[in-house]
Amino acid sequence: MLEIKCPYCGKRSQNEFSYGGDATIKRPQLGEEISTEDWDNFVYYRDNPRGKHSELWHHVSGCRQWFKVSRDTATHEIFDTCKMNEDFNV
């Protein structure tokens, strides 16, 4: 069971959280003229590295905040977590 440090609440076991996938995806601006390809990139295409992965988690059974986690997809090691408006330190 992963141990995830919620930037608001501290370390908690994985079963308090839900996963939100690739954190590098940027939603296009509302009303923006955008090609089908760019739009589909946003909807369907993901970073899928073996190694360091920037991802979203949601503290659903806690403070209900979404935040960012930098995690190794091969070892599951968590390098850092931070609030949405922050950047990772490592």
Partner: peptide
Amino acid sequence: LEYYLQVV
């Protein structure tokens, strides 16, 4: 809703 308010 929380996702859009907090992330997007």
